[in-house]
Every structure is written in C-alpha cells, then in structure tokens.
C-alpha cells in the first residue's frame, strides 16, 4: 500500500478532510522546492503534488504557467523532478504525486517512468491531458504499476462517465471544480458545490478531491463539505513569487496553510 493510499484510508476513517498543495518542481528555485515541501509538511499539509514543468500547459492559468516557465528556464526537467523526490525522501515520508502533461513523460518512456518513480518514492500520477481511454491504449504501463494514475473529472462530465472514471482511477478522483483553467478564485459557485455533491454520490466511495480555484480558508471550508479533500495550487505559488528572501515567503505559506487547516477542521464529514 502506498503512502498515499494509507493516508487516504486513515483520514477517511477519522472523518478528516485532506489538504493537498500543488507546487511546481523547481519553483521558486530548483534548490528551494524541497525546503518548501518540508515547510508544507510541518504546517500540516497531507500530501503534495509536484508539477512537472511543460512548455505548453494548456490547462493552466497565468500563475502556474509563469511558475512552469520559470522552472524550465532554471533547468528543471522530469528527471530533475524525480531526483527531487529522491532527495525529499531522505527526510520525509509525505506522500508525493507527480502532476504533469503527457509529452515529457512519453519522451522519458512510460515503462521506465513508472519504475523510476516507484524507486524514487513517488506515490501517484496526475496527467491532465491523458484521458482514461487514451491511457488504456497508449499507457498500459500505469495499470499494474505500484505508482498509479489518478484521473480528473469536470463539472460537465456526465454521470456514466464519472462512474466509469471513478472505477478506473487509482487512489482518488481529481474534481476540477470549475470549467476553466487553474488559478485562484475569490468565491465558490452553487454549480461547483452541486457538481461536487453529485460526483461524490456517483463515485461510489472513491475519494473525491477538489482542485482549481481554491484560494482561501472560507472557500476551502465550503467546498470540503462536499468532498474528501481540497487541492490548493495557484494561491500558494503566488505566495512564493517575487524577489523576497525565501524564509519570509515560507512564513507566509505557513500562515496560509494554518488558515486552511483551521477552516477544514470545523467541517464535518457531510454527505
């Protein structure tokens, strides 16, 4: 059982919401990413998604696009991200999921990737441009690998498809909470809440994590009433942007995580 599967099992049994943070590998600097991960862990984040930077991130808004470009410019690659996980694993057992677009993984070789990732200590993959059907056709390497693939669903995904994808995903369903690209949003709509509610009822026990647009404790609390956890990305990346010393940025990240944790604590395991 992977670190991630154990974490989910434990949290669900305790009726606790999971808090995950997305972070671009190599951001804000290649040497700083591990430090950010340790700080996130210390602040109580349950698992992190490390983003593999890509030249053409079609599902991402400006914040993650810029962090991705900056990481690429400083030389971050998929092998670099795998090394990063290896290094983190010397000090931490925090579950880590790699999130990235398909092409760099294809170039690396999918069979080689699942092996290297398992050895490095990766706990899962999220590939926003690899649909379940395409995965079955071109990426069978993921099916029996110890490190599995987790799929995404959207507010416009049909009922039968959500049921099907829930059956195919490894550890959780990634619920993209808005029709749009990634990026911090101020409020949460009724549509988003309704989407999460129906997805959870159709997912038949598969844990549902909501991501895209979650930027405050208030939004996280509202959203998490209808799912098993939340994923925060752009809002944290924004706190890491700019030329200030890293320790000041990390303090702000810790404060923000504390706000999110406090908001999630009060949320019951509502259905």
């Amino acid at each position: 059982m992977s670190r991630l599967a154990k974490l989910i099992q434990h949290k669900v049994a305790q009726s606790e919401k999971i808090l995950s943070v997305f972070l671009t590998a190599g951001y804000p600097e290649p040497e700083a990413t591990a430090e950010v991960v340790f700080r996130l862990e210390a602040a109580g984040v349950d698992f992190v998604e490390l983003g593999i930077p890509f030249s053409d991130p079609i599902a991402d808004g400006p914040t993650i696009q810029e962090s991705s470009q900056q990481a690429l410019d400083s030389g971050m690659t998929l092998p670099g991200a795998l090394h990063l996980v290896e290094n983190i694993r010397r000090h931490s057992e925090l579950p880590i999921v790699l999130m990235g677009y398909l092409n760099p993984m294809l170039k690396y070789g999918l069979a080689r990737l699942v092996d290297t990732a398992a050895t490095a200590g990766v706990d899962g993959f999220i590939i926003p441009d690899l649909l379940p059907e395409a995965s079955a056709r071109i990426a069978p390497a993921f099916e029996n690998a110890t490190v599995g693939l987790n799929f995404l669903v959207s507010p416009n995904t049909a009922e039968d498809r959500i049921k099907k994808v829930a059956g195919m995903t490894r550890d959780f369903l990634y619920c993209v909470s808005v029709t749009g690209v990634s990026g911090a949003r101020k409020s949460v709509s009724e549509e988003t809440l309704a989407f999460l509610q129906r997805t959870r009822s159709w997912a038949d026990g598969t844990p549902c994590f909501a991501g895209f647009g979650i930027a405050s404790g208030k939004v996280a609390a509202e959203i998490s009433r209808h799912c098993d956890g939340v994923i925060v990305g752009s809002a944290v990346i924004k706190l890491l942007a700019g030329g200030e010393p890293l320790h000041l940025k990390l303090n702000r990240v810790s404060d923000f995580i504390a706000e999110l944790k406090a908001s999630l604590k009060g949320v019951g395991h509502g259905h």
Binding site: L131, A134, R137, L152, T157, R161, V165
Partner: peptide, 11 residues
C-alpha cells in the same frame, strides 16, 4: 491522432 485533452473538453 486521438484525443489528448483535459476532461472538460470531452463533452
């Protein structure tokens, strides 16, 4: 060919 896109575009 194929469809290598985010899920939101499937419908």
């Amino acid at each position: 060919g194929g469809k290598f896109v985010p899920e939101v575009l499937i419908p």
